[in-house]
Design a protein around this nucleic acid. Structure first.
Lengths: 337, 337
DNA sequence: CTGCAAAATGATACCGGTACCATTTTTGCA
DNA sequence: TGCAAAAATGGTACCGGTATCATTTTGCAG
């Protein structure tokens, strides 16, 4: 194995073996330029014989098209992002694009450095999560002149296109639902509000619904914690310790809601009898636990598919004048609230 | 925005503005070749002024190093792969490598086409899941002359390096555990045995443990289904319908185990009283449901970190003579078995 | 101030594809 | 069969970096 001293075959080698010019070999390899079937056959055979593997870096340099779609996600700890990523990948597969993936960890600085790198790689399109970016990032993206898609939150004025849901509306709906059920003392457990427009919009939706129901917003009933299970428990413990009445809690993610549920369990509070708990995301486990979790269902795969189709049509030059795609959510009523 | 007619600045433009030669500008930009601080300063300033974004495709072509690490996963539906991916990404971030991600869907053909593409992109290293590849894939990887890492299953003779756990041992341990608890009629719910060495090894481990305990292996008690929740329920229903005694079930993933648990619930079977249920993976929800799930804990993040460190040290030319890294597993005893 | 090794810089070519335009071959039809 | 148009093919240059090796500049001892 070791002595791989022989260098890899180039298109010129293939051309030589096939008895044609490099450019003809190139055309033959990519079914594009008109090439006589017999010629293509010779070239393909030569390529096979030489174990020819094209060098896409050279192709990218020559054509200025990388066939890469870059995707920036906050992280992978939430299964919604994993699902979205896979569904983008699935939808892109047949078109010959690959995914370049980066995690921003909700840090604008990291995001910016990812964008910079992706532009360096001449990604054909960039997909980001949310619309909170640094000034620099916005400038970079605007001047990049490639399709840009922001996903997961709809916004009025996206950089390019935008595919997601209205986090505000969803949170409003859930809070409204809780109010209609007669709850008045509703806590909110958010996750990492900073640099996270999804959580921020949810908080705003929650507040708006309270106001519309004539319920005063009490900041003591709002907790901002990381998106981990244990943090949900902790936040719940804190909310209960505030000493105010509390008859419902709305958590900005199912993971947090589960943590909250567990804490209720520890403190021998009945859910939903003593306290109602609602989540967000409709993770698989939401339907599996006891009590099952009332939550907001999000069309994660549909979002991924839409993102892919928007990217593809933009890359194919189809100027789509619709730029904002609201994929809708659903309020999934289960036992916990 | 539209009229982005002006082309992007090149290193030559930067050089011109800085009043140096292109090659000097190049050296200045990458802190590598010795460049006088003053010169570097001029170049950096010129680059800033021109919004210079280097073209990595050109760099890749010239240096034959892409700074890309390709990772092939079966899918993203299992959170273990998502976690591993993120942990590889995290560990690689500071070294300036990006992740190229592909999903094989457990199809050797898809995997092969991914490998081909990744080689085309001149990925600096390739990370695969498992060690079941097509002949062609093996040949491609062997002749590629870049670091290859197979993860999630240890194997005696990996293509390159190999980081994972012994699925056989883990399944053996769990089955052994069930036997010691007095169970004799133990079913096995596997997932997609074809082209999946992880599941296959688990089945073998299960069988070996049964044999060692003098329990005959009954193929009627083995189910091969997809890795989805509903399939776990379905398999459980089928196992119960076989009409034989059944006092325990070992599922090759927690998702399947949860499906099985739900089915027990539906049929009013007490777990673990009437029937014990064990899973594999230690997903987050395993500890959250009732009854909590006895399962196999896998060091997912440690695996990702090790993969990254193996890749990095190989890329830095540190010939590591250890090639197989068994990261170990743990048997997590909870309520369900 | 000179001389010389070390450091910094530069000229040129090359990585491996493909665009562009010119040239040759084939095709279709009078 | 001849000829114009269409199709196929090829020569050359270029994409934007960097390796190589030559050349110039710098630093410092004598």
């Amino acid at each position: 194995m070791r002595p791989r001293s022989d260098k890899r075959a180039t298109i010129r080698d293939v051309a030589k073996v096939a008895g044609v010019s490099p450019i003809t070999a190139s055309r033959a390899m990519q079914n594009s330029g008109k090439v006589r079937p017999g010629t293509r056959q010779k070239v393909v055979e030569a390529a096979r014989q030489l174990d020819y593997i094209p060098n896409l870096a050279a192709g990218t340099l020559a054509t200025n098209a990388s066939h890469l779609v870059a995707v920036i996600l906050p992280n992978m700890s939430n299964s919604i992002f994993a699902d979205t990523l896979q569904s983008i990948s699935d939808s892109l597969r047949d078109s010959g694009y690959q995914l370049l993936v980066g995690y921003s960890d909700n840090s604008p600085e990291l995001e910016e450095s990812l964008v910079r790198t992706f532009l360096s790689r001449r990604a054909d399109a960039i997909v980001l999560t949310g619309h909170m970016h640094s000034e620099q990032t916005n400038a970079l993206l605007k001047s990049a002149d490639i399709p840009i898609v922001e996903m997961w939150s709809v916004s009025q004025d996206p950089l390019g296109a935008c595919v997601g849901i209205s986090n505000f509306d969803a949170a409003y709906s859930m809070t409204d639902y809780l109010c209609r059920k007669g709850h008045r003392n509703i806590g909110f457990i958010g996750g990492l509000l900073e640099n996270n427009d999804r959580t921020q919009s949810r908080l705003e939706g929650y507040r708006a619904a309270l106001r519309d129901h004539g319920v005063p917003v009490d900041d003591q009933l709002t907790r901002d914690v990381p998106f981990e299970f244990e943090d949900g428990s902790l936040a719940m413990r804190e909310l209960l310790a505030v000493g105010k009445k509390l008859d419902a809690v709305f958590a900005a993610s199912d993971i947090l809601a589960l943590g909250a549920l567990l804490e209720c369990n520890r403190q021998n509070l009945q859910v939903p009898g003593d306290i109602a708990v609602a989540g967000f995301d409709d993770e698989r486990l939401a339907s599996l636990i006891k009590p099952s979790l009332t939550t907001i269902g999000v069309p994660r795969r549909a979002i991924g598919e839409k993102v892919a189709s928007v990217v593809l049509s933009a890359l194919q030059g189809e100027a789509d004048n619709q730029r904002v795609f609201d994929m809708g959510f659903s309020l999934v009523e289960r036992e916990s609230a």
